[in-house]
Design a binder for these strands. Structure first.
Length: 461
DNA sequence: AAAGGGAGCAACCGCACATCT
DNA sequence: AAGATGTGCGGTTGCTCCCTT
C-alpha cells in the first residue's frame, strides 16, 4: 500500500528517483526529496503545501509534503523513545481527551501526533494482549466511569455529525423512557438495575479494566463520580463556570417530550434525565426517569446503553431476550445512535424538577421540560488533578474546600483568575461534595511504577 | 543459518472543516 | 450560495528490523 512499488499503471521514475504513480510519488522519502522540501520551506515557509509540487521537482502531493515536514523534517523534533514523564503525560491526556493525538502533541514539545498515536497503539496492543489495564490505577480510579477506551472511541466526526443532527433543538429520534423511580447514577446498584447494567453505565469496558479491578469495584461498591468530561474545545475555567451558572438559570424547552404517541420529538434513547437539585445531597446527583406506563412493560427500567459506544455490549439477558422493542431497537441501532449516546453522556442533561413532576398517569405533564447540558469542561491544559484535589479536600473535611484549593482549580494555565465569582465557588463546592474521596494510595507514583511493570516487558520496549 | 512472528514506525487514505474564489 | 482548494486529524496499512525458535 504505502510504497506503491510502481505497480500501478503509468509508473515511472521521477527526478529524484523512485516510483511514481499518477504523477505523484509515494512511499518512503529519499534524502534528496527531504533536501528539496527543506530548501523549499526555508525559502517559502510552511503552508501552501500544494505549491511545493508546482514550484519544485518534488513529485509529492501537498499532503505528503506536509506530513513529511511535520513528522520528520521540522526543526526541534525530538527523536527516540518516550521518556517515562512523556509516557505519563500521554496516559493522563488520553484518559482525559481520548484519541486526540494532535492535541496531545501540543502538550509534548518535539513530539508529533503520529508518534504518540503509534506509541499508544502499540502500547494498547501489548497491554491488551497481556490482559493488563490500559491505565495505571491512579488514573483509572480518578476518572472511573468516564475513561476513554481505545475500543470505545467514536470519531470526532461522528460526534459532530450527531451534534449537528440533534444539537440545535431538532426533533430527536425517540422518547426517553422514564420512571417515577429516581435512579442515582452515583449509587453502585440503583434500584431496578442489575449490577451488570449498572456497571455498564458507569465503568469502562472489560478489555480496558482488568476483571480483577471490576470485581474490586463490585465488592467495594465504589461510587462513581459525576461525569466530568473534558471538553474537546478546551474551554476556559470561565466557560466552565458559565456552565455551572446555567445549571441554575437556563431553560431550554423540549416541547412534547413525553407525548404518548410521539417518537419524533423527544430526548434520544438512553439519555438520562437528570434532576438537578440546587443543594446537592451527597451521592444523588443524577436521577433517571421513566414514565409510569413503562414500569410494567419490562423488567428493565430503560434500555441502558450508557457506556461508550462501539464494542459495547449489553448483558445477554438484556440484549438477547428482551422483548422491549425499544431495547431491541437499541441493540440494532446504527453507529450514529451509539455516537449520540456518547455525545449525550458527555453532555449530561438536566431537567428542572419543577418541569418533570409527574402529576398523573398521563404523560402530558411532561410537555414542557427544561433540558440543559450539564458540562464541566476542562481543557487539556488545565490539569484535572486540581479539580480532584478540591474533591479530596471536600471529602476529607466533610465541609467545603478552602478557597485556595477552589481557586487553584478555576485558575487558568497562566495562573490568572478566571472571573470566577463566589457564587461559582459555591457551585463547585456543591459539585465536589458529591464526588467520593480519592484514595491517596492510588495516587502514589510508586503504585504507578508497580502497575506499569508488565511482566516480561518493561512497559516500553 | 533460515524461517516465522511481533514490534515499531513511516506513510497513505478518507473525511471534515476552514478559507478562498 | 456553491464549488474549489488547502489543511488538519484520526485510522489503517505495510515495510523493516529484531528476536525467537
Amino acid at each position: 500500500m504505502m510504497n506503491g512499488n510502481g505497480s500501478g499503471e503509468g509508473s515511472s521514475t521521477n527526478a529524484v528517483g523512485g516510483d511514481v504513480t499518477g504523477g505523484m510519488k509515494k512511499g518512503p522519502w529519499t534524502a534528496a526529496e527531504d533536501n528539496m522540501l527543506i530548501d523549499y520551506v526555508k525559502m517559502n515557509g510552511e503552508g501552501n503545501w500544494n505549491a511545493v509540487q508546482k514550484n519544485t521537482d518534488l513529485a509529492r502531493c501537498g499532503k505528503s509534503c506536509r506530513l513529511r515536514w511535520a513528522n520528520h523534517l521540522r526543526p526541534n523534533l525530538k527523536k527516540g523513545s518516550f521518556t517515562p514523564e512523556e509516557e505519563r503525560i500521554i496516559l493522563e491526556l488520553h484518559s482525559k481527551i481520548g484519541n486526540k493525538w494532535a492535541r496531545m502533541a501540543t502538550q509534548l514539545p518535539g513530539r508529533t501526533d503520529n508518534e504518540i498515536k503509534n506509541y499508544w497503539n502499540t502500547r494498547i496492543k501489548r497491554r491488551q494482549r497481556s490482559g493488563l489495564p490500559i491505565y495505571p490505577p491512579d488514573i483509572q480510579h480518578r476518572h472511573n466511569g468516564f475513561l476513554y477506551n481505545q475500543n470505545c472511541q467514536i470519531p470526532l466526526a461522528r460526534l459532530n455529525e450527531t451534534k449537528s443532527q440533534f444539537g440545535r433543538g431538532n426533533p430527536l429520534p425517540r422518547p426517553l423512557h422514564s420512571n417515577q423511580t429516581s435512579l442515582s447514577l452515583l449509587d453502585p446498584f440503583p434500584m431496578g438495575l442489575s449490577n451488570h447494567q449498572t456497571m455498564a453505565m458507569s465503568i469502562p469496558q472489560p478489555n480496558m479494566i482488568s476483571l480483577q479491578q471490576q470485581q474490586h469495584q463490585y465488592q467495594h461498591h465504589v461510587r462513581q463520580p459525576p461525569t466530568v468530561f473534558p471538553n474537546s474545545e478546551g474551554q476556559s475555567s470561565f466557560s466552565r463556570m458559565q456552565h455551572l451558572k446555567r445549571l441554575r438559570n437556563d431553560t431550554l424547552e423540549y416541547p412534547g417530550i413525553f407525548n404518548n404517541n410521539s417518537v419524533s420529538t423527544a430526548v434520544p434513547m438512553g439519555v438520562p434525565i437528570v434532576r438537578f437539585k440546587p443543594i446537592l445531597p451527597s451521592g444523588s446527583l443524577m436521577h433517571l426517569q421513566r414514565p409510569p406506563q413503562q414500569q410494567h412493560q419490562s423488567s428493565h427500567l430503560m434500555p441502558m446503553k450508557m457506556e461508550l459506544p462501539s464494542n459495547q455490549f449489553l448483558p445477554a439477558s438484556v440484549s438477547n431476550h428482551n422483548s422491549d422493542p425499544w431495547i431491541q431497537q437499541a441493540n440494532n441501532n446504527s453507529g450514529l445512535l451509539e455516537a449520540l449516546l456518547e455525545d449525550t453522556q458527555v453532555a449530561n442533561r438536566r431537567v428542572s424538577p419543577e418541569y418533570i413532576e409527574p402529576t398523573d398517569e398521563k404523560t402530558s405533564e411532561y410537555k414542557k421540560m427544561k433540558i440543559e447540558p450539564l458540562e464541566i469542561n476542562i481543557s487539556e491544559s488545565e490539569d484535572l488533578s486540581a479539580f480532584f484535589d478540591l474533591i479530596n479536600e471536600t471529602n476529607a473535611s466533610s465541609s467545603s474546600p478552602s478557597q485556595a484549593t477552589t481557586s487553584k482549580w478555576v485558575k487558568n494555565e497562566c495562573g490568572e483568575a478566571s472571573g470566577v465569582t463566589e457564587e461559582d465557588l459555591i457551585d463547585m463546592q456543591q459539585l465536589s461534595s458529591c464526588i467520593p474521596k480519592l484514595s491517596l494510595e492510588e495516587n502514589d507514583p510508586q503504585n504507578w511504577n508497580q502497575w506499569d511493570d508488565t511482566s516480561g516487558t518493561n512497559g516500553i520496549s
